[in-house]
Design a binder for these strands. Structure first.
Lengths: 196, 196, 196, 196
DNA sequence: GTGTAACCGAGACGGTACGTCTAGTCTTGTA
DNA sequence: TACAAGACTAGACGTACCGTCTCGGTTACAC
């Protein structure tokens, strides 16, 4: 079926060593100080073996991210209560993760890498927001009558995830007690809307 | 009164030439391909003159941005109508700017640079969102009764600007007719709020 | 059999291009104005390729000298007559070479380089004095009875070559007709020795 | 009497500070690592003050040498015995000085500087050889009959000083017991000359 | 078996840019 | 006018990586 005419198969050991080295160095030093040279050395691998399989540094990072080596604590939301409570709980979890200073460098690096490689951007978005889950929860809310049928689910998700990304890029140092609730309430129209 | 003890004063000509070269090269090639070497050559200046006054490349970009050399078309919103119309108009303007493919590279570069240098992040945010103006408009809305007194103005701004930044980082190619209205309506609680 | 563990072999083409560029620039500008940067450019080679194989600039010059690229006219004495005539002939040849203004810069540069790198010093000495040949000629003189058995051959060579090096370092402009003979006669004790 | 047109006179304090800094740095690091920048800093002086009065680095070194700041131990020979004894004593003194490893760097640096600046070469020669004294002693030897009238005094001096300079440039590590005597005996024709 | 082709580690290559250092000139304020 | 301070343009220094190429050696199919 394959039309390969011989030759050794790709070494899984090398592949894993490279991804693991990428993850280790990324977490230590961030995207900006990541070098192919360094990854190859760390992985005990020739540079060509990297270039053979990944066209750019950011593809390497994207794959490491996909393999769960960069954001292992991937937020898996528990969506089993009322809409507001579910959203607030998810938002609090994500914000705690994002605000943790130990994740600062990594997240900033991932956003920077995301500007270069769309796959990274999307993957980060998914990992942060449990994107699909979130959309599903909101759609269920529409069905269950927790949200009106006219609620623009996509836009609500954009706003919430946008607020998180903004928080990563320009960290506000203000003490924002109750910010999760506030954000959720805004997008749910719960702050006693005016007549505008 | 001054305690400078001699030495020529800083050359304003050199400073401007450097910032202008930075802006020119940044706009041509983006942050990632910006080199001190290239800036010095373009500006007709010794490298040391750059290193003497700016510790890092991103400080240089921050100052160029501050001098209005990178985002000259700085969105100056016209806030003179009803709240929803004002916000929608501003949002449309900003989204048009952000969605323009000619600005893509520049904006992505600025966000990437913002992850490295907080000053850049803040400056971008200001230039994009006309941050202070936006806050003021919303606060006026509260006073004028267009918004309830309980409206969390800060959080609304975070959501709106976050949506824009998210759009820069992970551009969604979907044809989003009416997205500006939808986003504004969400944060104003205008999509016929559910009882949640 | 070989214990090379991989990697491309050293490029002889690059090695020669570097040495030739070194020689060319050395002869044009002298040791003091020789730059690795310039050699790399002239040779069409990356700087690292130079630094990989030669620890210092003077090692580079030493190897170029060893390859006969700097003093191609290397004095090869004809030692086939009587002792005094042989020495005088050799001395005249060397002094003519040394006194030639076209060689001035090069010889001074080589002596300067010799103070930094002993290998250069020795190589210059050899090339100038045909060191070994000279010693052999004098030793043959001892055997043949042209010199007494007590003649300190090594010291005689030191004196003669020293006079040449001194001439390079501090060129005396005096018109020194017959200096070669005079020097040889002194070391051969031929100026009608006093009783001291 | 002077036709100077006013203004502050040259500062002797600055001049001395510069020369002393030059000497200190030269002795510490040698000619190759001597920088105008460093001298100015060490002397607490503006660079322009150096450039105003000395065209090149080597002129600066020449003047420091002339002021006795580089070779303070200047060999002052005692010429009060028989010719051979006087010469041997002087030669031993100079060779001891030259062979002292603490003087190695300095002497090599001075020879290197001498290839660039003739004044330095001549000055080193004088300081080493007490040139004029040596010539006078030999001429007195001719008058006193210790040397024949035909003795080429100048050439003898060239040979002896050349041997010393050669020793500086290419230090021979051989254990040369009695070398001073041997060298002197050669130039005095005392090694029982052959008939050639 | 024996090619043949693709894999692998290693590392040399021509380059670009880094951030530092020094050269030599120019521009201040002070004495 | 000299001087200390120090900014300026210019360019070399030695280092780190880039992405490509070239080795010797190792699998694994296809004949």
């Amino acid at each position: 079926m394959t039309d390969r005419r011989g030759g050794a198969p790709r070494s899984e050991a090398a592949r894993l060593a490279i991804l693991r080295a990428t993850a280790r160095l990324f977490l230590q030093r961030g995207f900006a100080h990541l070098s192919i040279e360094g990854i190859a050395a760390e992985a005990g691998v020739g540079k060509q073996t990297i270039y053979r399989w990944w066209p750019t540094k950011s593809d390497l990072v994207a794959e490491a991210l996909l393999e769960g080596m960069l954001m292992p604590e991937h937020v898996v939301p528990r969506f089993d209560g009322a809409l507001r409570e579910d959203l607030v709980h998810w938002m609090r979890t994500v914000m705690a993760f994002v605000d943790d200073p130990r994740h600062d460098e990594m997240l900033k690096s991932l956003v920077a890498a995301g500007t270069v490689n769309p796959a990274i951007g999307e993957r980060v978005r998914e990992n942060l927001g449990a994107d699909a889950d979130l959309v599903r929860r909101l759609e269920r809310g529409v069905i269950d009558g927790e949200l009106p049928a006219t609620a623009p689910v996509g836009s609500i998700v954009e706003l919430l995830i946008g607020a998180i990304v903004l928080r990563i890029v320009v960290r506000s140092d203000a003490d924002q007690e109750g910010e999760a609730e506030r954000l959720v309430d805004v997008v749910l129209g719960r702050y006693a809307p005016g007549e505008g």
